[in-house]
């Protein structure tokens, strides 16, 4: 049997905001270079989990956690340098979040903060990242225009490219297609299949069909609990838990 490395390991992890539980004793792991889909109704703790992984939740004074979260076997709170962690763990938010600066500067934002100042080097990074997000052809002639002028779908691919620019190892997507048309969605899903060769992906989605199309495995969250995690096909055909079955067949949630 081949052993697949565990990129992310979650051990009895719980989260509370002001004492209100948002994640309850969650245990699972994400394998290297897989796409893990996370599905579940509103308030099930999906976003909370993603924002914990790159420690964005640390910014919230009401956030508290217990348990362990390991990336590459190292506890994110004990062993990782915060800024190195966030560089390695990219995040794409639900709404497109371009900064109101040029397309080029958006892409170069991360690399610049990590000490890359050389214009030629930056140009290479920008081109490479835009290409991997399938955006290069649409914007190559207007890199100096404001990123705010792009369409919503283009902005979201820009944000993906901006994450890629840092050469992360894990990319977290929080409902990246929730506001997008089917064509933009298809482009992003296509990009994800490419990314899978290089990165580990965690995709939170409200669209169970998308989870079914894209993911290798799917985790179903409900009210802060991990109900079930399994191969995508199993989750959608022979789920072990009644609640999973109810959710994926669209009976509630």
């Amino acid at each position: 049997m081949v052993t697949v490395t565990e990129k992310i390991k979650v051990k009895s992890f719980s989260v509370t905001f002001d004492g209100e539980p948002a994640l309850k004793n969650v245990n699972f792991s994400v394998k290297e270079k897989e796409i893990l889909g996370i599905i579940g109704p509103a308030n099930s703790g999906k976003t909370t989990f993603l924002r914990t992984l790159n420690r964005l939740n640390d910014l919230n004074p009401r956030y508290q956690h217990s348990g362990e979260l390991l990336i590459d076997g190292k506890d994110i709170y004990q062993k990782w340098d915060l800024f190195e962690l966030r560089k390695k763990i990219g995040m794409v938010f639900a709404l497109p979040t371009p900064l109101p600066i040029s397309i080029f500067d958006n892409l170069a934002y991360g690399p610049r903060r990590h000490g890359i100042g050389n214009r030629r080097q930056l140009r290479e990074i920008v081109e490479r990242s835009l290409k991997s997000a399938f955006l290069w052809d649409e914007v190559k002639d207007r890199l100096n225009e404001s990123a705010m002028k792009l369409s919503g779908g283009q902005q979201q691919r820009l944000c993906i490219a901006r994450t890629i620019a840092l050469e992360p190892e894990v990319i977290l997507f929080d409902e990246p297609c929730s506001g997008l048309d089917p064509i933009s969605t298809a482009k992003i899903e296509e990009a994800m299949q490419e990314f899978k060769k290089r990165y580990t992906l965690v995709l939170v989605t409200n669209n169970t069909k998308q989870a079914a199309r894209v993911s290798d495995r799917v985790a179903f969250f409900l009210m802060g609990e991990l109900v079930e995690i399994d191969q995508t096909q199993k989750i959608f055909t022979v789920p072990k838990d009644k609640r999973t079955e109810g959710y994926v067949s669209g009976r509630y949630g």
Binding site: N54, F93, L95, Y109
Partner: peptide, 16 residues
């Protein structure tokens, strides 16, 4: 707030 979150999520420090 999203500007700050984007920046932090790209590994920038607080001052950056």
């Amino acid at each position: 707030k999203s500007f700050r979150e984007v920046s932090y999520s790209l590994g920038a420090t607080r001052w950056q």
